[in-house]
């Protein structure tokens, strides 16, 4: 079994707060892993540690069996780790095509080639008709797609999606689920932070649950959602027992 990403005993403290607490996690190449947990569980911080926007206080991050703990975010992107941001951060004054081209430039030096590659990716993600619109004028759904397109343009091996479904209406969600599946199908490993459980159950082969910085469950979606600790993390102490009682 080959692990593309190994997080080894990673801890991140912000002052007195331990946002991520000795989390270890290994991700297989070509898989889709869901990362869930209540608000403030440390999901986004863990993403930042994997993508290089934060350095761990302890522990190591290995990518393709190479220790990348000390590498800054841009070097990790060169190695093939791309991320989207929970709060989308487009280059507001640039057009959709120009936004994506910045990502495409990572693998294409020439401007024309980067733009061509950007257009292709935009079409694949349904952004074709609005290629020349400024990013600032896009709807939330289109911005989410743009965020995804930009990350894909860097031709990543590992893609970290931070709540790409948040803020979308049900039909927009239905539209984007197959897009994510298609990304996995071309061989890109995906880890996604997501609150929309239906999508997580639908897409992910494996779900990892964080609560208060600690990894509390790891397994197939169905197993995890029945896990007593997971239910209690979301609904409070004793909730699992009460639910059990209510069902009986």
């Amino acid at each position: 079994m080959t692990f593309i990403l190994e997080v080894q005993g990673v801890t991140k403290r912000f002052g007195g707060l331990t946002a991520v607490d000795e989390v270890s996690l290994a991700v297989e190449a070509g898989s889709i892993t869901g990362l869930i947990g209540p608000n403030g569980a440390g999901k986004t911080t863990l993403f930042s540690l994997i993508s290089g926007f934060e350095r761990p206080s302890q522990g190591h991050v290995m990518f393709r069996a190479e220790d990348i703990t000390a590498l800054p975010a841009d070097r990790r992107a060169v190695l093939g780790i791309a991320r989207t941001f929970q709060i989308v951060q487009p280059f507001a004054k640039l057009s959709v095509a120009e936004n994506i081209a910045v990502g495409a430039h990572l693998r294409h030096r020439s401007r024309d080639e980067a733009i061509r590659s950007a257009r292709e990716i935009a079409k694949r993600l349904g952004l074709g008709p609005i290629l020349e619109k400024p990013a600032a004028s896009l709807t939330v759904a289109a911005r989410k797609r743009l965020e995804l397109a930009r990350a894909l343009a860097t031709e990543p091996v590992l893609l970290l999606l931070d709540e790409v479904l948040a803020g979308l209406n049900p039909s927009e969600m239905r539209d984007i689920v197959p897009v994510i599946r298609a990304i996995r199908d071309v061989g890109i490993t995906v880890i996604m932070v997501e609150h929309v459980m239906q999508a997580v159950m639908n897409l992910c082969e494996r779900v990892v649950v964080l609560n208060q910085g600690r990894l509390i469950a790891d397994g197939k979606p169905r197993e995890v959602t029945r896990d007593q600790r997971v239910i209690e993390a979301y609904l409070g102490k004793g909730a699992a027992a009460r639910l059990e009682a209510a069902h009986v």
Binding site: D74, A77, F85, Q89, V102, S110, R150
Partner: peptide
């Protein structure tokens, strides 16, 4: 490419870093 990166830095430095 340098120009595209320069404008990206102006617009949003975090996003630019995420894109390498």
């Amino acid at each position: 490419r340098f120009g595209a990166y320069l404008v990206a830095v102006r617009e949003n430095e975090n996003s630019a870093r995420a894109l390498g």
